Deep mutational scan, measured.
Amino acid sequence: ETWTVFRRYSRFREMHKTLKLKYAELAALEFPPKKLFGNKDERVIAERRSHLEKYLRDFFS
């Protein structure tokens, strides 16, 4: 099953920080790092999307 969620990266990062405070075991999940430069580059966006998808798969498993 596939879901499509339209949210900004910052909202996922905020969710991760909030949940990590409540559920300490989530700290073990690696959240994709923020890029200061090149964040509009298609390659960077695709890489971030891939890392975010892995994070979410790990989160829900």
Rank of each mutant, 00 (worst) to 15 (best):
F37S: 03
K22E: 01
A46M: 09
W3Y: 04
E30S: 13
E30D: 12
R43D: 05
D58T: 11
F37H: 02
N39G: 11
T18A: 13
V44R: 12
N39P: 08
R43G: 14
P33L: 15
E1L: 01
R8N: 05
L21N: 05
F59M: 06
L21W: 02
L26H: 00
E53Q: 12
E42H: 03
S61R: 13
S10R: 04
F31K: 01
R11K: 15
R43L: 05
R7T: 10
L56I: 10
L52N: 02
P32K: 14
L19R: 00
R8E: 03
A28W: 07
R8M: 14
R48F: 12
A28E: 02
S10K: 05
A24M: 08
D41L: 15
E53H: 11
S50T: 09
A24G: 03
A46W: 07
R11V: 14
S10L: 10
P32L: 15
R57N: 04
T4D: 13
S10G: 09
L52V: 11
F37A: 03
F59L: 07
F31N: 01
L26T: 00
L56V: 10
K20F: 01
S61T: 05
R8I: 15
F12Y: 03
F31P: 04
A27D: 04
R7P: 07
L29D: 09
F12G: 02
I45Q: 13
T2G: 01
T4S: 12
Y55V: 09
W3Q: 01
F12V: 11
Y55N: 06
H51T: 14
Y9M: 13
R57C: 06
R48H: 00
R43Q: 10
E47H: 12
E47Y: 06
V5S: 10
L29G: 06
K20P: 00
D41G: 11
V5R: 09
H16R: 09
S50M: 01
G38V: 05
G38N: 07
K35C: 02
R13N: 06
E25M: 04
L26E: 01
M15H: 04
Y9C: 12
T4Q: 12
A27W: 04
L36P: 05
A27M: 14
R11S: 12
L36H: 01
R48V: 09
I45E: 12
E14K: 08
K40G: 06
L26Y: 05
L19Q: 00
E47M: 09
L52R: 03
S50I: 09
E14S: 06
L56F: 02
A27Y: 00
R7H: 14
P33Q: 04
F60N: 03
A24F: 05
R49F: 10
D58H: 12
R13G: 11
F6C: 01
F37Q: 03
S10N: 03
E25K: 08
F60A: 01
L29F: 07
T18W: 15
E30G: 13
F37I: 08
R13F: 13
Y23F: 15
R8V: 14
K34A: 15
L21S: 14
E53N: 15
P32W: 15
R7C: 12
E25I: 05
R8W: 10
R48I: 12
K35L: 07
D41T: 08
S10E: 01
R13A: 12
G38K: 05
M15R: 00
L26C: 09
A28L: 05
R43I: 06
L21E: 15
E1M: 05
A27L: 10
T2V: 07
V44K: 13
P32S: 13
L29I: 15
K22I: 11
E25H: 01
F31S: 01
E1V: 01
F37C: 02
H51C: 04
L19Y: 00
A24Q: 06
D41R: 07
K17E: 05
F60W: 13
R48A: 11
Y55S: 12
Y9D: 03
D58R: 13
A27S: 09
F59I: 10
S50K: 08
L52T: 04
M15S: 00
K17S: 04
Y55H: 08
R11L: 09
H16W: 15
P33Y: 04
L29S: 03
K35P: 03
K54E: 05
E42Y: 06
T18R: 06
E53S: 15
A28K: 09
V5F: 11
E14C: 05
K22N: 01
N39Y: 05
H16N: 05
F59T: 03
S50R: 05
I45C: 12
E47P: 12
R13C: 05
L56N: 03
T2Y: 05
E47C: 11
R8G: 12
L19P: 00
Y9P: 12
Y9G: 14
R13W: 07
E25D: 01
K20A: 02
V5I: 09
K35M: 04
S50W: 12
D41E: 09
N39C: 07
R7F: 12
K17T: 03
F6E: 07
E47A: 05
A46Y: 06
L26G: 02
S50Q: 03
Y9E: 00
L29H: 04
D58V: 09
K20Q: 04
V5P: 04
R57W: 03
K22L: 12
M15E: 00
P33A: 11
P32V: 14
V44W: 12
R11N: 08
V44I: 04
K22Q: 01
H16I: 15
M15A: 09
F6D: 03
Y23Q: 04
F12K: 00
Y55W: 14
R13Y: 09
E14T: 02
V5H: 01
M15W: 14
N39I: 11
A24S: 06
S10I: 06
F6H: 03
F6S: 06
R43C: 09
L26N: 01
D41S: 11
V44Y: 07
D41W: 15
L52P: 13
D58I: 10
F59C: 04
R8A: 15
M15T: 03
Y23K: 01
K17C: 03
T4H: 04
H51D: 01
R49L: 14
S10C: 14
H16F: 09
K17A: 05
L56E: 00
F31L: 04
W3L: 03
K22Y: 04
E30A: 13
T4K: 08
K54R: 11
K35D: 01
E42S: 13
S61L: 10
A46H: 02
V5A: 13
R57K: 09
E14P: 02
A27R: 14
E53K: 15
L21Y: 03
I45M: 11
Y23S: 03
H16A: 12
L36A: 04
E30Y: 15
R8Y: 11
I45H: 12
P32T: 11
E14R: 02
L52Q: 00
Y55G: 10
K17L: 00
A24V: 05
F6V: 08
L26P: 02
N39H: 11
K22P: 00
D58S: 07
L26M: 05
A24P: 03
F6P: 06
D41K: 11
E30N: 11
A24W: 02
S10W: 10
R49W: 09
P32D: 09
F31E: 03
P32G: 09
E1A: 01
E25N: 10
K17V: 06
G38E: 07
P32A: 11
E53I: 14
R49P: 06
N39D: 13
F12P: 06
T18Q: 15
T2L: 14
R8Q: 11
F37G: 05
F37L: 06
K35Y: 09
Y9R: 06
S61N: 06
P32Y: 01
F31C: 02
E30H: 07
E42K: 14
E14W: 01
L21K: 15
H51E: 04
Y55A: 10
E30V: 15
L52H: 08
E42N: 15
D58K: 14
A27K: 14
D41M: 14
Y55L: 13
Y9A: 08
S50L: 09
K54P: 00
L36T: 03
L36D: 02
T18H: 03
R48N: 10
M15L: 14
V5W: 12
K35R: 11
